[in-house]
Design a protein around this nucleic acid. Sequence first.
RNA 1: GUCUCGGUAGCUCAGCUGGUUAGAGCGGCGGAUUCAUAGCCCGCAGGUCGCGUGUUCAAGUCACGCUCGAGACACCA
Length: 511
Amino acid sequence: MSFVITTPLYYVNDKPHLGSVYTTLICDAIARYKRLLGEDVIFITGVDEHGLKIQRTANEKGIEPKSHCDEISEIFNINWKNWDISFDKFIRTSSKNHELVVNEFYERVKASDDIYMGVQKGWYCVGCEEFKDNPSNSSTYKCPIHQKNLEWKNEENLFFKLSKYQKKIEKIINEPSFIEPIERRNEILNFVSKGLKDFSISRTNVSWGIPVPGYDNHTFYVWFDALLGYVSAISSDKADHSLEKSINGGWPADIHLIGKDILRFHAVYWPAMLISAGMKVPKKVFGHGFLTREGQKMGKSLGNVLDPNLLLSKYGNDPVRWYLIKDISLGNDGDFQDRRFVDIINNDLANTIGNLLNRTSSMSRKWFDNKVPNNEKISKENKLEFLASASVENYINKFNIYKLDQAANEVLSLAINTNLYLNERQPWLLIKESDKLPAVKEIIYNVLESTRIIGLLLQPLLPELSSKINLQLGSTYQKDVPWKQQLQWGQLIGDTKLPKPTPIINKLEYE
RNA sequence: GUCUCGGUAGCUCAGCUGGUUAGAGCGGCGGAUUCAUAGCCCGCAGGUCGCGUGUUCAAGUCACGCUCGAGACACCA
């Protein structure tokens, strides 16, 4: 059984922004987590390259759409590597194999008698190049963006019989686990209950797209094409790619993680399309929130767009991951605040976790010949062992239901509890009494062990920091041993050499 | 316009089916300690729980109204 997780296929109109980085980082954490649990993960990301907007952007730059897409796609690809994203597939919707899959899919949908030629008519703004749905549309209505009169337009389009799937879609979205979070689910339920209308899947005025077989001047509407990228991605690296290859390769997706703005396409149109083609629907569509900055919407007009690459180069990968994962609850909107960012990183990562490792390792080295002490096990019950196993359990429970922020907080509280334990036991006093040596050994072993577990728990969230922690404990994550097994108490081996501790994370300064 | 969600300490937010002195983290202030990255640990924050009315023995927690904010109401992704 494979676990298929997808980011949206990002529109190549512009380079990656913080929002796409956010989505992708979350997916990466989930993908890493599932791999640690031993699942066969297919982590899909990629780019959506067709459509009028791209065509126009390329025209403005005076280049072919294809070269524009090559350029931006490469930026995305490099970008994800810089962020250490562990994706398995990177799909480009302009690729040949994708086109083959789209055509095959289209044939299936056609065979289900779900395609017909219709007329898209309505009030059209030439400036926006789109139809405006205006209840009181009259010829005097002006487009609010362009301040121009609308034109009445008829356009021949191929339509997909979405209305036919009303009942089936209702059934799917009624399943509480299908759409998360629940607030978004209500919106979709409400939308669907008003009755589904067929939607057009082809355009006649867009040349940059996949041609519809049999209709010379038609190309597929970008959404019809883009959603299929999730499917074609699965077989993208196969020599002979076909729809069947993708289906057998792991479809359906276990989770589509997307921004809340594109929920409807994923939770309504997409399942209907899939049913029509005789395919399975995704198991879950998760619409996360948006990021604001210092309480304000980010936008070009406000000039407050936060460049993710700047964050990466200035602060590094793990701090950004920690902030976005731990401080924003998945599904809610989140606010990026410079001050808070610095505080959180310094407190959580440097002071609580980093310093714990540092003080622990220092004591052990100082008193036990630069080594891990042997576990004396003199106490009847081990408080830290109890706390650690509780944290591991909670962490896994939270992660399984995609409450990543709570999982992260679980790690943090284990670190806090471990610091607390140290302060209670005060081994630095006990060490002065020679008969207390066994007790000191036990305490130090426990604390080192707890720290090792903290490091392991951080593996899917902060891969870099995690390995740094374990390295300093002389205990690396072992690929051949199940992660859950390594999370069990008591795996740290006595007499292991401890390297000289160095800070695993530098403190940030607020400017 | 219709509908949905939210308005709780300086900031970010927890508070499930109503019930002892309303909680956490961060920031701020004070204290104790030294193994450690001036760090960890301990204590302090007296907040009309947006406003008003009502239901109730009892409401942050329910109902209604108002107000402010976010969002949905189909082909921009």
